[in-house]
Design a protein around this nucleic acid. Sequence first.
DNA 1: AAAATAAATTAGATTACCCTAATTTTACTT
DNA 2: AAGTAAAATTAGGGTAATCTAATTTATTTT
Lengths: 218, 218
Amino acid sequence: MHSFTEENYLKAIYKLQETNGEVVATSALAQVMEVHAPSVTDMLKRMAGKKLVTYQKSKGVKLTERGRQVAVGIIRNHRLWEVFLVDKLGYKWDEVHDLAEQLEHIHTEDLTNKLDKFLGFPKADPHGDPIPDANGVLPKSKAVLLSTLKVGEEGTFTGVTDHTPAFLNYLDKAGISLGNNIKVKAIEEFDQTYTIQLNDEKDTVISHKVANSLLVNK
Amino acid sequence: MHSFTEENYLKAIYKLQETNGEVVATSALAQVMEVHAPSVTDMLKRMAGKKLVTYQKSKGVKLTERGRQVAVGIIRNHRLWEVFLVDKLGYKWDEVHDLAEQLEHIHTEDLTNKLDKFLGFPKADPHGDPIPDANGVLPKSKAVLLSTLKVGEEGTFTGVTDHTPAFLNYLDKAGISLGNNIKVKAIEEFDQTYTIQLNDEKDTVISHKVANSLLVNK
DNA sequence: AAAATAAATTAGATTACCCTAATTTTACTT
DNA sequence: AAGTAAAATTAGGGTAATCTAATTTATTTT
């Protein structure tokens, strides 16, 4: 139906809209898509022709409702495939992104729903990112960054904002896993290093950079 | 690594070599690929440049060893995904071809092997077609067409030569499934209609066309 | 508000894959 | 062996997605 490229643009626009506001700039898209600006302008014209986005010369893009539907469908598919790769095939959470990036483009409504059922209707992917339901509804998360907690507060580790293998690997090594209870024991004033307690057991020291990439539910 | 298109050409050439002999004609490929002859000539030149095929102007194509490896790898992947779709997701055997046709192009050695393991190292896909092993070795089948059996002979139904949904559906309706024992009770001389017995139970009458599309192991 | 900087667009090419029409090569008949 | 039919190739184009270089539009600074 849509080309892989189109679908990747839709996904990129969707994500940029989520994080940076309603209107997405050509340059932002170019960076995310790893292409040069004129390629983006070109593509946006084609996609506007297909009513996937509304595009005004030099004014940025927005997804149309149809564009949003497609984007969310792909994100749903991506996250379901990630669950498959980890839960069924035994991949580690830092290895699945690139494969899911390809599998996400193989989607008929039927396949996605059958996969969803097979996986037991998971609510989140292996990184804790929520999986949109069959109607394209993405549950609003009330998770906050660990770095916003004060000493003495605690929460359940439910997601990451940094998805790089390097970071995920670090968490593995540090023994920090999704579902862990994290309690802030101390915050070093000088450099905002956090001392946290995992599952009421051992204390661990993490940098501010790390605390700023962990999502917790209070 | 290789484009979907290239992979589809490789697969088509491989299959044509299997059934029609070592050298494949441009026109045959054009028909299978559903493109016009000049497109094939064009593509073959590019593929020859990449050492996937050996191509001599107006003399047809052959796969190189590398080309054969890639082709068999894709067939392996295709058939494994078909098993996944039927065994795990609950698709019927007449529904999986087109989806597998897309999934087959998502293949890293690692993914394919993990999938293989997850599925329990199946020997054949849902239509009975053998699955090449990780080294690209395809077990030689000794199955024969049911239409070559004489009255009184029998065998196990292990595969089809017609993979169309229409035919597969017909078999479902007629209650003929892979693994069934089929015994030839009678062959009508006039039109070669076969009367067969399934699993030593009920007798069924099938046309010569059908008998000619069923593979059995004597 | 004018000048300077940054962002976006147009212009003109390139590559992979496909097309139609015209031509050449191969194969088949007589 | 010549003539015809069939198969394959060349020639010339088209579209999607990309690029670089040049130009225009928008934003920021003075």
